[in-house]
């Protein structure tokens, strides 16, 4: 761990003011950042501790949604009665992530900014464009079982590891941020960047901008499912996950909001897939077609080729479950 300056901010204005430099990072739960700092994969010159900020509440919004403070822990958010009742896909996604100990510490804002779990990103003995721009990507021709098949570039094939963000993407959440002098809201679909040739830049956040909350739109209704496929039953990152909010009316699909984890550098959502489903009668052939659309540009790198059929089958199973008649 490199020596660093540490500031404990008293309020949001102070936090943002202290975070002006490019080498500065905010710290909340620290469940990912501290590990990366110990390995010197990340070596910020300054940490601004935001744990004393008043960002811990979950409130109803005027439009009927929820405003989730950036410091709400994963455990508290998953257990919130309103979330469990009206946005159950979010609660299930949270509980599918990490372990009980980590969820007690990890926060809503921090979860959105988790770094990838690519083996080579964690290994300073190996090239990685995300860790060290321009050094190359060892994963493409290396061990890439857990890595991405969508949205990759020749410079990076990392996945975003969050479960929470996948559910939020399906729900159409927005991110509230505070910067120097002004605040703004960013739709989650605009929040992350594809790697292109700058895989080290992962979001549209400006230096010093602080996530203060996540806004959930009003309850989406429908049937909500979060299905996570992984290498063991718990405490493993998704190989593929599907967050689904699906409603059927008069035998036809009236709503299909689908987001995917484990496939790309961001929680993945594809409007063409949803368009192809809405208005149609549920059938195996339809679900296959949805898979075709989703995976049209999927590219495997050897070790992760299996994610293509796995995604197709998991999506079909989730859609089947979401559209079948009540037993």
């Amino acid at each position: 761990m490199r020596a660093f300056d540490y500031v404990r901010a008293g309020d949001t204005a102070e936090a943002v003011r202290e975070a002006g430099g490019a080498e500065t990072r905010f710290i909340a739960g620290g469940t990912n950042l501290l590990d990366l700092m110990k390995l010197e994969v990340m070596a910020p010159g300054k940490l601004v501790d935001i744990n004393r900020l008043d960002l811990g509440g979950i409130e109803a919004t005027g439009e009927g949604g929820l405003r989730i403070g950036a410091l709400v822990t994963n455990s508290d958010l998953a257990a919130d009665a309103r979330v469990r009742r009206d946005w159950p896909v979010l609660s299930r996604a949270l509980l599918a992530g990490a372990s009980g100990q980590l969820r007690n510490k990890a926060t809503t804002g921090g979860n959105l900014l988790q770094r990838t779990r690519c083996y080579y990103f964690y290994d300073r003995g190996e090239p990685c464009n995300k860790r060290e721009p321009g050094s190359g990507c060892a994963a493409k021709d290396g061990m890439n079982r857990i890595l991405a098949i969508l949205g990759t570039s020749e410079h990076c094939i990392a996945t975003h590891p969050s479960d929470m963000a996948v559910a939020m993407r399906a729900l159409g959440a927005r991110v509230e941020v505070e910067g120097q002098g002004s605040g703004r809201e960013i739709a989650l679909e605009d929040f992350y960047r594809l790697p292109g040739d700058t895989p080290h830049i992962e979001t549209v956040l400006e230096p010093g901008e602080l996530i203060t909350a996540v806004i959930l739109p009003p309850p989406a209704g429908g049937r909500q499912i979060y299905r996570k496929v992984r290498d063991r039953s718990s405490y493993a990152f998704a190989l593929v996950s599907v967050a689904a909010v699906v409603a059927v009316e008069n035998g036809r699909i009236a709503k299909a909001q689908l987001a995917f984890g484990g496939l790309g550098p961001m929680p993945w959502r594809d409007a063409d897939v949803e368009d192809a489903l809405v208005g149609e009668t549920p059938s195996a052939a339809l679900f296959d077609r949805a898979g075709d659309i989703l995976l049209a540009e999927a590219k495997g790198y050897g070790g992760n080729d299996f994610k293509i059929p796995l995604t197709r089958r998991t999506l079909a199973a989730v859609l089947t479950q979401a559209t079948e008649d009540d037993q």
């Binding site: 779990r117 083996y119 857990i146 063991r232 990152f237």
Partner: peptide, 13 residues
């Protein structure tokens, strides 16, 4: 490659 306990998958409870 997977030399940590997050990625070397021992069975969990």
């Amino acid at each position: 490659v997977n030399r940590d306990l997050a990625e070397y998958h021992l069975p969990v409870n």
